[in-house]
Write a protein that binds this DNA or RNA. Structure first.
Length: 273
DNA sequence: CAGTAGACTTGCCCTC
DNA sequence: CGCAGGCAAGTCTACT
């Protein structure tokens, strides 16, 4: 499940191989992956050169010559396989892109991911209503407090709301709440300004550590391309139901918050209501 | 307007 | 063993 650290890892990895390569051929085999309001078809990228590699929230953004941008959201299982020579396609390979020295396969077993080609990435991301990047200097405890102090929603759902802070998914939301010892059901209007500061610091630390480790490896998910789960960070909350809390040994508990599976320590993360 | 619920998608796991 | 059903994820749309 690629969240911000995984997307960052993929972008940086692809940059090493693909910078300045020209696209010779593009083929989108499963057309619904392209958003219906994409400004251009995938084939427009033929003859264009990879000139920049960016990330915005959980979106990958490849910059091409002549001002084109290919933007992709991997959702659950979108992934790239990069080959030096021709490689056979699998039934989950939905896009093929050939450059001078590489063959890029895009796979998505659940066909859940989406992509678009545009010349105006700013307005594209504007429409997605993304909040601040975790390291944006505008993301302060005052901003976060103002954004949530009247909200009746659970803090867990607030962390997943991409319009406030962008990049946090279900895995890191649980990790951040465990780290800050905040109960996931705590309402936004019960979060103190001090806790807002803790949340921001923990978000940055947690995501930085994950990026340094090359992204989390969950189940079948491989961090990027041919790089498999060699690196793996230890998750203290997500998926740890029934395991002893790493702080106090109390068995971790799983609940459902807004339809999202949520794991926390009932002793360490007491603050509620 | 804020908040919630359903749709989308499909492989996997569990129960019957 | 086959099958039905629940679950997982992030985002968008529709509704209260």
């Amino acid at each position: 499940m690629p969240e911000l650290p995984e997307v960052e890892t993929i972008v940086r990895t692809l940059e090493k191989s693909l910078l300045n390569e020209t696209v010779n051929h593009v083929e989108l085999m499963y057309e619904p992956l392209l958003e219906t309001d994409s400004m251009y078809p995938m084939e427009i990228l033929e003859g264009k050169k990879f000139v920049g590699f960016h990330r915005r929230g959980k979106y990958l953004c490849f910059e091409f010559s002549d001002g084109y941008y290919w933007i992709i959201h991997l959702r659950m299982e979108g992934k790239f396989h990069l080959y030096g020579t021709h490689h056979r396609l699998t039934k989950h390979t939905h896009l093929l892109m050939q450059t001078e020295h590489h063959e890029i396969h895009y796979l998505d077993t659940r066909k859940f991911s989406r992509m678009a080609v545009t010349k105006d990435p700013d307005s594209y991301f504007m429409r997605k209503k993304l909040g601040f990047e975790p390291w944006d200097t505008h993301l302060t405890s005052s901003y976060l407090y103002e954004a949530i102090h009247k909200s009746t929603r659970a803090i867990k759902l607030i962390l997943l709301d991409q319009s406030i802070i962008t990049g946090i998914g279900n895995i890191y939301a649980d990790e951040i709440l465990f780290d800050t010892q905040i109960h996931p059901l705590t309402k936004g209007n019960k979060i103190t300004k001090k806790q807002c500061e803790l949340i921001i610091n923990s978000t940055r630390n947690t995501l930085e550590n994950a990026i340094a480790a090359g992204g989390t490896t969950i189940r079948s998910y491989t961090s990027a391309l041919n790089v498999t789960g060699r690196f793996q960070i230890t998750l203290k909350a997500y998926g740890q139901e029934g395991e002893p809390c790493s702080r106090c040994e109390t068995p971790m508990v799983r609940i459902v918050v807004g339809g999202r599976s949520t794991v926390f320590c009932p002793k360490c993360q007491k603050v509620k209501r």
